[in-house]
Amino acid sequence: MRTEPITGPSGTPVPVARTLHWGRWLSAAVALVIAGWLVYLVVVNPRLDWGKVAEYLFNERILSGVWVTIEISVLATALGLVLGVLVAVMRLAHNPVLSALASGYIWFFRGTPVLVQLIFWYNLAFLFPELVLKIPFTMIGLKWDTNQVMTGFTSAMLGLGLNLAAYFAETVRAGIQAVDHGQTEAAYALGMTPAKRMRVIVLPQALRIIIPPTGNEFISMLKTTSLVYVVAGHDLMTNASQIYKANNRIMELLIVASLWYMLMTAVATFLQGRLERRFGSDAVRLVRGGGLAARILPKAAA
């Protein structure tokens, strides 16, 4: 807004009047009052024991739960990303069977609630009491007790990872399809095989489109892990709920858990910003390590 006077037709400077945005002030004030009142109601609530919140914030089980939540999130996201690329490439394959299988996968895992999938994996032993990996027609192989393999942790990782893969496959597919088809033709004309063209030309460029949403996927995964408490995955939410079931301090422990989720989200958001700045415009190096640039042009890459 201009504050410097304007020299009018008479030759003398005339000050500029300030516009008062009454509407803005009023709406801000109303919103602040309502928000402040709600916070106040919770904070001063005599039934809420803030001492307990402080007491449990760094409780050993809570901290171990935080750690498990991070582990599950990282592993499930990694599984989802790798599998998602695979499903996307299958989905785009000319082979109609592969393409249909990939579509079926996406439809199934997006079509059923993730909660149902978690419980399904956890209870896999009902269908397959033993998991057997063996070479057909021989006695050579490995065998596990399903209940020992499908702990809360592994079923959480599998359930969340397989589910993410279905969503992520669509992101990857969009990224791959966004790469100009002319470059595919040029790659073929140079003598590349379809696989090499995908790895060397298409995926590095598709990553620019794929990488920004992966940050969001991870952040949402951090919180989706709370569903794991239905299969007792020893994550933050599971441990918090076990504590409040014992001492009945439900609200306090929900606040403790929320504070940790908020902290993890804040850290992940910060890392996401760095990731996007680093790779958003130049995702090439991620796929090929040092990249061609680093190998043939050490100075330019440095």
Partner: peptide, 23 residues
Amino acid sequence: FQRFNLFAHHSALENVACGPVHV
């Protein structure tokens, strides 16, 4: 090609070196 179809993520030099290196 009519529309050049250079690899957009590579420099001019990398475009030219791409075939010998990768193919």
